[in-house]
Computed example of a mutant assay.
Amino acid sequence: MCKNVPMVPMKKSVDSAIQKSCKPAMLGRMWQASRRALNLEHSPAHQFACSQWQSSPHPSTAYLIYRWVLFLSVMSIGVASFACQRLPRSYDGPKIELNYMKWFIYFTNWGYLLIALQSGLALAVVHRYRAQKSDSLNLRFAACEEDEIPIPLGRRARTPLLCRAYWLAHNIATDLAFVITLVYWALIHDPKIHEVNTLNILVHGGNSLVMLLELAVTSHPVRAAHALHSAGAGLAYGVFSAFYWAVGGTDRVGLPAIYPALDWNKPASAFGFVSLCAVVLVFAHAVATCAAAVRTRLAGRLRARPSAERLALPTH
């Protein structure tokens, strides 16, 4: 006779095995979703070369003119900002020789360089797609109209490097422009030192107006997860300012801090200021994301209205 064998709790062992196998799968799916959210892949790629307010997938002549005007305007203001540097009128310290290369240590000018970079890259993207035949773009547009089509990235054609570089520069330039305008006029600007002239207003207010215009005109999306790119850029400037202070760098009048609020002689307050800017950059990106979503929805409704009117039956 067979001895009685104790029953194994099969249900519990199966459940524990399922839980152990599900955890890696769930973590893998979360990792893949995070990678998709943070990457710079988007289809159709021709949206980086077109305006939201045109119906054709081929870059329009009006949009090309807009890109040239914006690029030349941004470059002109940037050159003027670099060439017209001078000490504040209220400066009464020892006589110093103005170092023009210190233009590059200021966060405002980092942001403005990114605006110039993204406008130049946008112009290059438009010229690239203008050189392609309209028929090929129409076929791609018909085959893949939205980024929501569930095609694995391994099978989908990758977004061109030029478009990805433009998208990254556009995202960071937009968020930095909003934060620079807010922080400068709220915390940095001192009427006794800083003059309120045309050039000052253009680089500390016109920068945000330019990027708001870009958000209203362009057709590519703004992803919420890309806020990490902008926060990383803000933290990178914080690291640069700390390194610049550590090697004995000074501002244009010889003070050890580039900005009064970013004085690394007081590391706690300086680190707090950098952290605050990183958080504000995330909120600025949220504003940009909402603005792009409103633009897309409004353009969709305006396009749907004429087609609905054409399909409506006559009432007489």
Rank of each mutant, 00 (worst) to 15 (best):
C2W: 06
V5N: 14
P6R: 14
M7F: 08
M10E: 13
K11T: 15
K12H: 15
V14E: 12
Q19A: 13
Q19W: 14
S21H: 12
C22N: 04
K23I: 15
P24L: 10
P24T: 14
A25E: 05
R29P: 00
L40R: 01
H42T: 15
H42L: 06
A49L: 14
Q52W: 09
Q52L: 08
Q52F: 05
W53K: 03
Q54H: 08
S56H: 06
S60C: 07
T61A: 15
A62V: 10
L64I: 09
I65V: 10
W68R: 11
W68L: 14
A80M: 09
F82A: 06
R89Y: 07
R89V: 06
Y91I: 13
L98T: 03
L98W: 10
M101G: 04
K102G: 02
W103R: 02
I105G: 01
I105M: 01
I105Q: 00
I105W: 00
G111N: 02
L113W: 05
L114P: 00
A116D: 03
G120Q: 07
L123F: 05
V125C: 11
V126H: 11
Y129L: 12
Q132P: 01
K133S: 11
K133G: 10
K133Q: 09
S134R: 10
S136R: 09
A142G: 14
E145S: 13
E148C: 08
R156H: 07
T159D: 02
T159Y: 03
L162N: 09
Y166T: 04
Y166H: 15
Y166V: 00
H170E: 07
N171M: 06
A173V: 00
T174P: 00
D175Q: 12
V179D: 00
V183M: 11
W185A: 06
A186K: 05
A186P: 00
L187S: 11
K192D: 13
K192V: 12
H194I: 01
V196W: 03
N200M: 05
L202S: 05
N207S: 12
L209F: 14
M211D: 03
L215N: 02
A216F: 05
P221L: 11
V222P: 00
V222I: 05
A224I: 15
A224E: 03
A225C: 13
A227L: 13
H229I: 01
S230A: 09
G232A: 06
G234E: 00
Y237V: 03
Y237D: 03
G238D: 03
A242V: 03
Y244H: 02
Y244F: 04
G248H: 09
G248F: 09
T250Q: 13
V253A: 10
L255K: 04
L255A: 14
L255V: 03
L255E: 11
P256R: 09
I258R: 03
A261D: 15
N265K: 05
A268Q: 12
A268S: 04
S269Q: 14
F273G: 01
V274S: 15
L276E: 01
C277H: 00
C277G: 02
V279Y: 08
V282I: 13
A284R: 00
H285L: 10
A292Y: 02
R297W: 07
R297K: 15
R297L: 12
R303Y: 07
R303N: 08
A304D: 14
L311P: 04
A312H: 12
T315L: 11
H316G: 13
